[in-house]
């Protein structure tokens, strides 16, 4: 007996690819918990999400339907899985599935599945296409932006923006366009993948910095760690990063969580402009894939999130180590066709 509380935790985002989901870093953090002995149930949308085959991380994986197939389909699948596995806590890690799980919070809770997700109105108001209004409401500098639903609109709004501009998908992807042709090309590329609208955003010259944070839903920041990407992939993802010592970033985070009473994990994407001002360019309403850096720096935010989901008392983290670096690596995991077959046919591994 190790005295730790046994918990079954369901996690999505097992796509530890070059566009990594936060699932495996979250699991890694939970496996290092001082208080919990976790059994991890992976929920995968695709058969080749690497986390499925990482048996030291994920105890059992179930295929689940995409949220686009309907909230009920996804919810019923999760409820069915929980009948077998008795899930205590569910940690969704994809933007695209969050709304479905937020809407289902009560049904999940009735089935004994705890979550710790943002309120729907808070989730909606920080949406990329609502970000300028969010900035005005809460007093944060935000680049001007506008949702666009067809390429013709790009021409109409031309007077409002100077090139370069940033084009963003509603969930993921961002490209910098330097002229009309590039803007049109990226519009089609993004809309084909993520649907409409595509968001056009003013380009702020500076350095991108990020914060991973956890709000308790009462306006308190349970933890926050700022980071700068040291190596960025061609998908714009951090492949290496370093924790920063920046009081202003922390103050901004505390102010944002205080004003919005944010509930759950979040990632703030900021630009520190050349004249040293911070612009909020995005609020991701979930734990980011680089969260393990925060764990390495002394803040096990996924563990704290689980405690909050279970209604346990959590003391806010007050410190973290500065100058801590993460460097990602790729790894060839060898598995057998039988495993792939089992998951493909039965939806369970």
């Amino acid at each position: 007996m190790n005295g730790k509380r046994k918990l079954t935790i369901a996690v999505t985002g097992l796509n530890n690819t070059d566009n990594p989901g936060p699932g495996i870093p979250v699991i890694r953090a939970l496996r290092e918990s001082q208080d919990f002995d976790v059994r991890i149930i992976g929920m995968a949308y695709e058969n080749l999400e690497p986390g499925i085959y990482m048996h030291d991380m994920v105890d059992k994986t179930y295929r689940v339907p995409y949220p686009s197939e309907g909230t009920d389909m996804l919810l019923n699948r999760v409820l069915d899985i929980s009948k077998i596995e008795k899930i205590d806590v569910l940690i969704p890690n994809f933007d695209a599935e969050l709304l479905a799980f937020m809407k289902s919070r009560k049904k999940l809770a009735d089935a004994g599945i705890h979550t710790f997700l943002p309120e729907i109105d808070r989730f909606e108001e920080r949406n990329k296409n609502n970000l300028p209004d969010f900035g005005k409401k809460y007093g944060f500098k935000v680049p001007s932006g506008q949702p666009v639903t067809n390429p013709e609109e790009l021409k109409e709004i031309k007077e409002d923006f100077d090139y370069p501009v940033v084009l963003k998908g509603k969930f993921y992807d961002a490209y910098i366009a330097n002229n009309d042709d590039q803007a049109a090309m990226y519009f089609h590329k993004i809309s084909a993948k993520w649907g409409l609208p595509v968001i056009i955003q003013e380009y702020i010259r500076g350095t991108e910095v990020n914060v991973v944070a956890l709000g308790d839903g009462n306006g308190n920041t349970v933890g926050a760690v700022p980071m700068r990407k040291l190596y960025i992939t061609d998908k714009g993802k951090a492949w290496a990063g370093i924790t920063l010592d920046d009081e202003r970033m922390l103050e901004l985070t505390h102010r944002l969580i205080g004003a919005t009473k944010w509930r759950g994990g979040m990632e703030l994407e900021l630009i520190r402009s050349d004249d040293d001002e911070f612009y909020l360019i995005e609020i991701n309403p979930r734990i980011p894939a680089w969260v393990y850096l925060a764990v390495g720096a002394g803040q096990n935010l996924p563990e704290a999130l689980v405690k909050l989901a279970l209604g346990m008392e959590v003391s806010p983290f007050t410190e973290y180590k500065k100058g801590i670096i993460f460097v990602r690596y790729s790894f060839d995991l060898i598995t057998d066709i039988n495993e792939f077959e089992k998951l493909s046919i039965s939806g369970i591994l």
């Binding site: 700068r228 370093i242 920046d246 520190r272 100058g323």
Partner: peptide, 12 residues
Amino acid sequence: SESGFLFDPTSG
């Protein structure tokens, strides 16, 4: 550091 490595923790 003694080796001449300079680290700015604000900017990284």
